[in-house]
Simulated assay, not measured.
Amino acid sequence: MKDTANKPVRIIVFAKAPQPGFAKTRLIAALGAEGAAALAKRMLLHTLHEAIAAKIGIVELCATPYIDEAAWQVVAPPLGVEISDQGEGDLGTRLALATERSLIRGESVLLVGTDCVEMSADLLREASRNLFEHDAVIHCTIDGGYALLGLRKFNSILFHNISWSSDAVASTTLSRIGQLGWSVHVGQMLHDVDEPQDLKYLPERWRMHVEA
Rank of each mutant, 00 (worst) to 15 (best):
M1E: 11
M1H: 14
K2I: 06
D3T: 13
D3W: 15
T4L: 15
N6W: 12
P8M: 06
V13I: 09
F14D: 00
G21S: 11
A23R: 03
I28A: 12
A30W: 03
L31C: 09
L31A: 09
L39T: 05
R42N: 11
H49N: 15
E50S: 05
A51G: 04
A51P: 04
A53K: 14
K55T: 08
I58D: 12
V59E: 05
C62G: 00
D68G: 06
Q73W: 09
A76Q: 14
A76D: 11
A76P: 01
V81I: 14
I83W: 14
S84T: 15
D85P: 03
G87T: 02
G89K: 10
T93V: 13
T93A: 15
L95A: 03
L95G: 02
R105K: 15
S108D: 11
T114K: 02
D115W: 02
C116G: 04
S120E: 11
S120H: 05
D122N: 13
R125Y: 00
V137W: 00
I138E: 01
C140W: 01
D143H: 04
L148G: 03
L148K: 00
K153S: 05
I157H: 00
H160E: 12
S163A: 14
S163Q: 12
W164T: 04
D167F: 00
V186R: 15
H191E: 07
Q197E: 13
Y201D: 11
Y201C: 12
W206P: 03
W206N: 03
M208G: 05
E211D: 11
A212V: 08
